[in-house]
Computed example of a mutant assay.
Amino acid sequence: SEGHRRVERGTDCVVGFVEHHGRPRTEVMLHGLEQVPRRELAYRGAVFTEMDVDAVLVRRPAVVLVDELAHTNVPGSRHAKRWQDVEELLRAGIDVVSTVNIQHLESLGDVVESITGIRQRETVPDEVVRRADQIELVDMSPQALRRRMAHGNVYQPDKVDAALSNYFRPGNLTALRELALLWTADRVDEYLQQYRGEHGIRSTWQARERIVVGLTGGPEGRTLIRRAARLAEKGAGGEVLAVYIAASDGLTSASPKELAVQRTLVEDLGGTFHHVIGDDIPSSLLEFARGVNATQIVLGVSRRKPWQYVFGPGVSATVARESGPDLDVHLVTHDAVAKGRG
């Protein structure tokens, strides 16, 4: 569809390799598009076809369509993987429109296997896909996809029942769909952070819940991390970032052992741990939160004893006062309240 759209607006776009797998509705869409002849390779007594990289380079279109980015080429090809063919075309100044299924991303191999019971042999490094100028999610509900399969639009009739009852079960498809949505959301977030940095935007854009947990190294940190994780669960795609602010002189009362425990806890809950150097703790914490486009900050109620407030309002109160209208600050009570300086 994208190829036809580009040709209609006058772009020199050709098909480098599109595999229709015998699907009539896909095959008919190739009509009207110029196809670069494939290269034939003999392997183990059979003849296979692959994209002819040299032919595409000679033809030198503005845009080439290259299907199945994670495909492994037949031995004897110039590159082992199709994504390597694509990188050569890009280096030659040819734009590429490609496709990849979420289960073929290298970082998700273990997760996909645990869900489907099948290990994907063909994968593409995430970084290759992340370098794309544009990423478009092609989404479909599991029910709609299963209907397409039942109508014979994906597999031959004799293979439909087996496919529907095995890999393409509703649970598998729902999990794969969620993986695709979350992976794409992370990529969109990278674009957003880049845009904010390029334009010097410091105010919070509340596109997703991003919760910063301020840690002191005290035992209350575990309570704060768990509370933040519960807050993150209430919003789709919520993220937890735990941060410990250390003084530049290296003097600290924090327990390294306790911080290590808290790092493990936040990572086990799907969050990240950050160690920041800063002599003014409230300012450093707020600077970190705004830098990561946080929407909420979770802090513990001060461990200071009442008489210690003569030295100032404390970190929690200062952060709450200076957070501004874009950052919500949660002060969480815990067992160590008013039992020591903090």
Rank of each mutant, 00 (worst) to 15 (best):
Q84F: 07
V112N: 00
V329P: 01
A144M: 04
G218A: 12
R202V: 10
L108F: 14
L327P: 05
A42S: 10
I245Y: 08
Q103D: 02
R9N: 11
Q84N: 04
E113A: 14
I135M: 08
M51Y: 03
R304C: 15
D279K: 09
Q206E: 15
S248E: 01
V66I: 10
I135Q: 02
Q296V: 06
T333Q: 13
A55P: 10
L179Y: 05
L224A: 00
T223P: 10
Q134Y: 12
R131C: 14
R78T: 15
D161L: 08
L179G: 02
L181S: 04
P37F: 12
R146G: 10
W183P: 00
V243Q: 13
H104P: 01
K257E: 15
L57F: 05
E40P: 03
A132I: 09
R290L: 07
G22I: 10
V74E: 09
R303M: 10
E198Q: 13
D189A: 08
G109L: 01
V129G: 02
E122F: 08
R91S: 11
D280E: 13
L89S: 01
Q193E: 15
R78M: 13
E8P: 09
E50W: 04
G221H: 05
E40Y: 07
I102V: 05
E27G: 07
L41W: 06
D328S: 04
V329N: 00
A175Q: 12
F288Y: 15
S165Y: 11
F17Y: 11
V97M: 11
L269K: 09
V276N: 07
V129R: 01
V212T: 07
L215N: 01
N153R: 15
R25C: 01
R119E: 10
V7F: 07
D280P: 05
R119K: 13
G250A: 05
I225R: 08
I102N: 00
G214F: 07
Y309E: 15
E178F: 02
G340C: 02
E267N: 09
P125F: 00
G218R: 04
E68V: 07
H79L: 00
V97G: 04
H275M: 10
Q84A: 09
G16P: 02
V188F: 05
V276P: 06
V240G: 06
R78Y: 12
V36Y: 03
L137D: 06
R177Q: 09
Q84H: 09
R304M: 15
E87Y: 08
L285E: 01
A232P: 03
R78D: 14
M140K: 06
R59C: 14
A92G: 09
